[in-house]
Every structure is written in structure tokens, then in C-alpha cells.
Amino acid sequence: MKFISWNIDSLNAALTSDSDRAALSRQVLSTIAGEDPDVIAIQETKLSVAGPNKKQDAALKEFFPGYQVEWVSSQPPARKGYAGTMVLFREGMEAKTTAPRIGAPDTMDYEGRILTVDFGDYYFVNVYTPNAGSELKRLADRQIWDKLYADYLASLDSKKPVIACGDFNCAHEEIDLAHPENNHFSAGFTDEEREGFTNLLNRGFVDTFRLLHGDIPSVYSWWAQRIRTSKINNSGWRIDYFLVSDRIKERVRRSEMLDSGPRQDHTPLVLEMD
């Protein structure tokens, strides 16, 4: 089985815009399609409450014919066109999709941040973890989220194995970003967020990239758009992950980043398992 995860930073922009960035995004979508995955997880769709419109749906089908599409969007009282997640999987796969609310603070439960698919033998969970925000204004709420999300994954894992992926908005260790010395008080690398990620792993999960690649340095999944040379200089962060239940880690065969070319921001991840 092959799984792919990508924070697309606006599905509409990627599918329908004429901008240079949209063209680069479509190249990444073509790369994903070329991998012929069984399941695709997308974060930060920024769709309306009603989901993909006809134009967006048609464009998706051009890239991924023969896939069923499930989604959850931000809804009141949360902001419109904010966050949102989507999962595509091959038609014919038996699946039951839910968009759980975990009791998170503020409007986090209404921002379309978790989409879970029960594939029978295992759960597949797509997450877009809340960012702690500028000046760490949302850090306290983020800490609560991290605990509740860990509880949620552990509850699923108590029933059957879990594959969890997405944008976790956290570089776990110093090796997971290019300049740790400058970022200990930056969103995504605070001690509190890193502790939350450690707690998640300690609930019975493994970071599949580190499982296969050990302490290989300078491999990242995100480069800041606002810094024009961030990707050229590989000044990035690894904040996107594929996690699996400890008891199925021996089934992992491939876990790596896909090449997104010159496009900055997130790059897709691929996971292959027996």
C-alpha cells in the first residue's frame, strides 16, 4: 500500500488559479499522481463549508480519476475558508469516514483539522495541527490540542493499528530544522510543542522517517515562502510526518519526501507499507 500526504496551502488556488505558484502546485499534483498512491491526504484545503465546487471537483478528477474524495471544512464559529482536510482513496476500497471533534479549545474543533478513515484493518488519520501562531498567542491552546489528539490516536490504537499523517506544525528534534539555535521560542519548535510530540510518540507510535533513516540531517518538508532563498539554501523544517502504531512498524518499507521542485512551502511525503 502506498500513502501520500501533502499540505497544499489552498486547494482552490492550486487547481484553478493562473498564477506561477499555482502552476508549480499543479506540477506537484502531477508528481503525486505519478506515484499512483492508494490513499492521498491533503491538509489546508481552505474550501468552503460545502466542499469542492464543480470546477474544483472536475480539476481533481483530472489529476486523480478513479478516486473517492472525502473532506471536512472549517465551519462556524470558525473562520470561513480556513484550514480543512481531505482524503482521496481508490474507488472500491471499503471505508468509513469520520470528522471527529476531540474537545479542543477555542474554535479548533470546527476548523476541519481531522479526517479519519476506517479501512477495516486499520485507521488512517489525516491531521492539520493548529499553529501556535505569531507571538505564540495560541500556544496554550495548542498544548491542550496536543494532549487531546494524543488521547484520540491512542483510543483508536486500542482497537486496531493506526497510520497518522499530516502537517503536525512541530519540528521534533534539533536535527529537524536547519537553525535550531535561533528558533527555541518560535512557533513549531518551542519546548512545549516538542514535548507534546514526544508524548504522542510515547503513546505507542513511531516516526516512520526516523525509523528508516535514523539521524540523517538536512532533510526537511517545509521551507518558508517569505524567504526567497529558503529552499535554495535548504533552510527548512521537518514538520510533516507519517506515524504508525509501534506494532506495525516492521511493515514500513519506504518513508520519505517527494521532490516538489522549486515550489517553496510544504513538500509531499510518501509512505509504503506491506
Rank of each mutant, 00 (worst) to 15 (best):
D215E: 15
V206L: 05
F205K: 04
G204P: 05
F242Y: 08
T229K: 08
S245P: 05
T208F: 13
W237S: 04
S255D: 04
N183Q: 10
Q225N: 15
R226G: 04
R263Q: 13
D207G: 08
E193P: 07
R226A: 07
I239S: 02
N202V: 03
D265W: 08
W223D: 01
P217T: 10
R226Y: 07
R253M: 12
K249Q: 15
T198R: 10
N202H: 14
T229P: 02
E250F: 08
F189D: 00
F185T: 07
R203C: 12
L177I: 08
S221K: 03
W222S: 10
D176E: 09
R247D: 14
D191W: 10
D191P: 01
H184P: 00
R251Q: 14
S186L: 03
D265F: 05
R253V: 10
T190G: 02
D259R: 00
R254M: 12
F185P: 00
D240C: 09
G196H: 06
L212G: 03
V219Q: 15
D207I: 00
I175W: 06
G214S: 05
R210H: 06
F185K: 10
F242T: 09
H213S: 01
E250A: 12
F197K: 01
S186K: 12
G261C: 02
S255Y: 06
S245M: 10
I175A: 01
G204V: 03
N199P: 00
K249V: 09
L258I: 12
P217A: 07
Y241L: 04
Q225E: 13
A178Y: 15
G204R: 11
R226W: 11
R194F: 11
L200W: 05
N202D: 15
T198P: 00
T229W: 04
E256A: 08
R228H: 13
Q225R: 14
W222G: 01
D265R: 09
N199L: 09
R254T: 13
P262M: 10
A187K: 03
